[in-house]
Amino acid sequence: MRYLMFVAMDPDRGEDDPEVDDIDDWVARHDASGARVIGDRLRPVEDATTVRRRGGKLLVTDGPFAESREWVVGFDVLDCADLDEAIEIASRHPMAASGRLELRPFWGDDDDAGDATA
């Protein structure tokens, strides 16, 4: 399964936890295992651009689409057997200690999602 892992700052963050990896180690380890498909840091929200189409008109505006105290500073795409493996990998990311990580499963190509069993 693939997960998009949002890496976010935590405005109420606690102290750093020595159990997490250094970011370079973390990236190297999970690139090597194949669990990390791609990932990067993101420029701050001042550099964000929001794009919408409304009534045939293109609206391009400066800034993010949602004002939030927590802001996303990076992302990784993880390819894991299941959620527990993704949690295990996320738990060793340095931002698990100083920020927050959100694991969002890819929708996938399951065409009958939500279809109840007869």
């Binding site: 399964m1 894991c80 299941d82 527990d84 499963p105």
Partner: peptide, 8 residues
């Protein structure tokens, strides 16, 4: 099912 919570 959707989040891949394992059965183990």
């Amino acid at each position: 099912a959707n989040a891949g919570i394992p059965y183990r």
